[in-house]
Design a protein around this nucleic acid. Structure first.
Length: 108
DNA sequence: GTCCTGACGAGTA
DNA sequence: GTACTCGCCAGGA
């Protein structure tokens, strides 16, 4: 096969890998987009964002537990917006400093 | 084929 | 601390 050419992953396979990782994040904890990308074997964290935007069921796949590398929340959370994501995390006991998650406490 | 767009991250000034 | 690049890579126009 053409091993010199990088694998072209389908969006479906990316979604599958990302959702599997995100479902493993415990309640009350968070992972960064970069961490999810690494565990899902994706080269770019942006693919994680793409997959999460297409989350078929946020009740099963807790995409609100994925945050920026500095603890900030994406302004593009697709199921109620940034404020909704903040609310969900607070309800789980995630600690915030200012408007960012305190990663020294809640980062998986 | 090219160009632009994203739920990002690391580096630099 | 902020602002600005650049790299990343699948999709869509």
């Amino acid at each position: 096969m053409d091993s010199s050419h990088p694998h072209h992953q389908t969006l479906a396979s990316i979604q599958s890998a990302v959702y599997q990782v995100v479902k493993s994040i415990p309640l009350g904890q968070v992972m960064t987009y970069g961490q999810v990308a690494q565990q899902a074997h994706l080269a770019s964290p942006r693919l994680v964002g793409r997959a999460l935007h297409l989350n078929p069921d946020p009740a099963i796949i807790p995409c609100h537990r994925v945050v920026f590398s500095n603890g900030a929340l994406s302004p593009h959370y697709a199921f109620g917006g940034q404020a909704r994501q903040h609310q969900l995390l607070l309800a789980e006991g995630v600690v915030f400093k200012k408007d960012k998650v305190d990663l020294s406490i809640s980062l998986l």
